[in-house]
């Protein structure tokens, strides 16, 4: 029952943050970040399992490896960007948070560029000159 552990750590951290915020807001922020990271690392193993299963299926079905890697990279970018943005937003820096999100979106689009290029080239080739 890992969910209980996660919820427990979350609640405890919340109380501690509440207590410390009175004295030292900086430490409260650090504690919140730390808790977030711990929870995420705990979940990373589960996500990895899911992804391994998907990868296995993909190799069995001979899905192009490029596709799969692109997809995974996109998800990874989304996760990291999201994490950074939330931490910054917690610290009260909304503008930096939105910049981080912007960077995440842009990088995802960059990942898609090769695919878009291939599709457009093919369409142009199919169309009579």
């Amino acid at each position: 029952m890992e969910i209980i552990q996660v919820v427990g750590i979350g609640i405890i951290a919340t109380f501690l943050v509440l207590v410390i915020k009175e004295q030292k807001p900086v430490f409260a922020f650090l504690l919140a970040t730390f808790t977030g990271i711990v929870i995420f690392i705990a979940l990373a193993g589960k996500i990895a399992e899911v992804i391994r299963v998907l990868e296995h299926l993909a190799t069995q079905a001979r899905v192009n490896n490029l596709f799969f890697e692109t997809i995974l990279k996109i998800v990874g970018i989304a996760y990291i960007a999201e994490f950074g943005a939330q931490v910054t937003r917690d610290a009260g820096q909304g503008s930096i948070a939105s910049k981080i999100e912007l960077a995440g979106k842009l990088l995802i689009m960059v990942m898609a560029i090769p695919i878009i290029t291939v599709i457009i080239e093919t369409v142009i080739q199919i169309l009579p000159a």
Binding site: I9, A13, L16, I20, Q23, K24, F27, A28, L31, F34
Partner: peptide
């Protein structure tokens, strides 16, 4: 580590 950080925070305060 959560408690460590909280403790450090309180003690420092």
């Amino acid at each position: 580590a959560v408690f460590q950080i909280a403790g450090i925070g309180i003690i420092v305060a």
